[in-house]
Computed example of a mutant assay.
Amino acid sequence: MALNSINTNAGALIALQNLNSTSSELATVQQRISTGKKIGSAKDNGAIWATAKNQSATASSMNAVKDSLQRGQSTIDVALAAGDTITDLLGKMKEKALAASDTSLNTSSFNALKADFESLRDQVTKAATNAKFNGVSIADGTTTQMTFLANTDGSGFTVSAKTLSLAGIGLSITSTFANATAAKTMIASISTALETATNKLASLGTSSTGLDTHLTFVGKLQDALDAGVGNLVDADLAKESARLQSLQTKQQLGIQALSIANSSSAAILGLFR
């Protein structure tokens, strides 16, 4: 037979325990909905939280890798732009040398072609010297190679520099011609310089393609890591919304159950009338 006591209301205690449990679950669901995360701190699930934090840190550090690779792209792009200008100048120099090799030219015409040739030669030097990005050049002969970040472990992507100055393509600041015979000889020198320049530009183009490919890979890897972290800690809001409604109903019923349990003690008063 159940004990009728005004000191201890077992039914109310049970109803209160259930109500507290429901309130705790409701608070958890509300927190997940407000933050969008099912695991927001280490106390929610220490192992998964630690894994997510480590992966999130790796994904964030990849921003430094992407920045470095993009600097590499820009450095090579500047060198390639200078190289395009230099090859165009070499083509014009060859044209001037060929025209000057014509023995039928008068002195005035020859000297004009010679002056144009030397002006174009000097522009090659300017193009190579000014081919800098952020104060660094891989075309002017001041460096042999540059290494950019390739991964979060500090490993690098190395790009070999290609000197596109006059000395780097087989010419000099004194390259010129004094007569038609020398101009004819210069044609072969310019052709060799042009071939050297285009080969170096082709090599830089290959390096640029490699950087582009690796940068794309790093971007995809970062996206995959971010998605993986989301799978670990993000809340399913549709599911949590449905659970919220369920718990709110359960909470209301719990309050009513507690009220009924508390009213049972009042029934004892009827026994004394």
Rank of each mutant, 00 (worst) to 15 (best):
I255S: 14
S34R: 04
I260H: 10
T192Q: 13
T196L: 04
S21L: 04
G40R: 03
A197Y: 03
N179W: 09
K38L: 07
L244H: 02
T198P: 06
G170K: 08
T176Y: 07
S241P: 06
S104H: 07
F177H: 05
K239C: 05
S160E: 14
Q30H: 01
A188N: 07
I169L: 11
F217W: 10
S5D: 06
D212N: 14
T209Q: 14
T28H: 03
K184Q: 11
D67V: 12
N151V: 12
L244S: 03
M1A: 08
D226K: 14
Q70S: 11
T35G: 05
I173D: 13
T216W: 01
I33W: 01
K126L: 12
D236H: 04
Q145V: 14
T85Y: 04
L215C: 08
Q30C: 02
D84L: 11
T142V: 06
K38T: 04
S119A: 15
S108Y: 02
T75G: 02
S165E: 06
K184Y: 04
V159L: 09
S189Q: 11
S241H: 12
D234S: 04
K220D: 15
L105Y: 03
S60R: 06
T35I: 09
K114D: 01
K184T: 05
D44E: 06
A112T: 08
T213S: 15
A202S: 15
T58M: 10
S21M: 02
L225A: 00
A227K: 15
M62F: 14
D88F: 06
Q252F: 04
N45V: 12
F157L: 14
L13M: 04
R32C: 01
L225R: 00
L253K: 08
V29L: 02
W49I: 10
K43H: 02
Q123K: 13
S203C: 00
L244P: 05
I6S: 03
T152S: 12
L258T: 02
D140I: 05
A161L: 14
Q123R: 12
A227V: 13
E240H: 06
S68Y: 09
A183F: 03
T176C: 04
G254K: 11
S263N: 15
I6D: 01
L13E: 01
V124E: 04
S104C: 05
K184F: 06
K162D: 11
A128I: 12
A180V: 00
L171G: 04
A15D: 00
V65N: 05
E95D: 12
L113D: 03
L105S: 02
T125G: 02
N134K: 12
A267C: 06
T198M: 08
N231R: 05
T8Y: 09
N9A: 02
I169T: 08
A97Y: 00
D122N: 14
L113C: 05
I39T: 03
G210Q: 13
A82K: 04
N20L: 01
S34K: 09
N111L: 09
K92H: 07
V29Y: 00
F110Q: 00
K37V: 06
T198A: 07
K132L: 10
T206H: 02
G40F: 11
L19S: 10
T125K: 10
I14K: 05
E240K: 09
A42S: 15
Q123P: 04
A12L: 13
T174R: 08
I173Y: 08
A47W: 00
G36C: 12
F148P: 07
A261D: 06
L194D: 13
S56L: 12
L3Y: 03
L26V: 01
Q123V: 03
